[in-house]
Design a protein around this nucleic acid. Structure first.
Lengths: 165, 165
DNA sequence: CAGAAGTTTCAGAATTAATTGAAAATAAGA
DNA sequence: TCTTATTTTCAATTAATTCTGAAACTTCTG
């Protein structure tokens, strides 16, 4: 396999993977392209390589920057903006976890809190409140664990990995 | 808040959460409905409660069973099939991880393996192969860690949680 | 300040995913 | 075996998401 075929395949696969991770297909493809680029690319470069429109490129690059997966790089003497990807995979995973925790887990915790306020002495209400309480307990633990995980450095992952093996 | 409002809100929120987890909105809603149901429900019950079509109910119940998140329950003397949800949250999370690992991580590992075969002595190829190798290393570790995690019992989670705090 | 280079926005178009509903298949009972 | 209850399938429809492209906006430079 030559390098161009390899790159294409990587971009395509990374895009497919990302689309299941709250990162849209194009977003993941841009990230993939930047991951394997030996140097920063401009919006124009990305548009050409992935054959996407200017608007699409712009919106997805911005989203990637919001997630902390891509950084802007300014070159002196150049007016254009260039972009590089976060290449440390542990960091990438942490940032995705942080985003999803904020956007998904935390709102759910809030809802579970509200649902604890359901009243009633009938068995139906009792059962409901019990289920909600169990889930809330679990979710709070998960939330705390993910917090630690997001704060931890790469070595943490290596350590846990070692312990498990 | 009364119990009916509470149930509605729970189903709605759980559905929204699920739709970001490889579980479609309706699939997650059915799971939510079964989680808070004090006893097994028939397909008919689910259709009525969620106001969805027979086909939709059937397909999503089956998907939930494939994932191991819902079980069939046969009542003697009843011809209909009834369904109950897995209620242990740790088990639910493990099953979701197991599915996604199989459907996403493992295919990606296969692709990364193939991409290692890219040849060339030019800097571009060298860089590409290096990036792919880094990602592969990380992914293999993640894969092994998730394997252990999926095999582990609830206590494992509690232990890790305690260690982190 | 005027013009050029670059970036952002967003309504409509295109694409992709989920849902319906009716027909086909299956299974149980008489 | 035939009838009836129940489940499954899938083509057509509907809904949700993503992308385009042109116009508006911003920033830099002479």
């Amino acid at each position: 396999m030559n390098v161009q075929e390899g790159k294409d395949k990587f971009i395509q696969s990374w895009g497919a993977l990302g689309s299941n991770w709250g990162v849209s297909r194009t977003m993941a493809q841009i990230h993939a392209l930047l991951l394997i680029a030996p140097h920063a690319l401009s919006a124009e470069d990305i548009m050409e390589d992935l054959k996407i429109s200017r608007g699409n490129a712009n919106m997805n690059i911005r989203a990637l920057m919001d997630w902390g997966l891509v950084y802007k790089e300014l070159k002196t003497g150049e007016r254009k903006e260039f972009f590089v990807a976060e290449k440390d995979m542990w960091d990438v995973v942490k940032k995705i976890i942080a985003q999803r925790k904020k956007k998904e887990l935390e709102p759910m915790l809030k809802v579970l809190e509200e649902l604890s306020a359901v009243e009633g002495n009938d068995p139906e209400s009792q059962n409901f409140v019990q289920v909600v309480r169990d889930i809330k307990l679990f979710s709070n633990k998960a939330n705390a664990t993910l917090d630690k995980l997001v704060q931890s450095d790469s070595n943490w992952f290596v350590k846990v990995f070692m312990n498990m093996i």
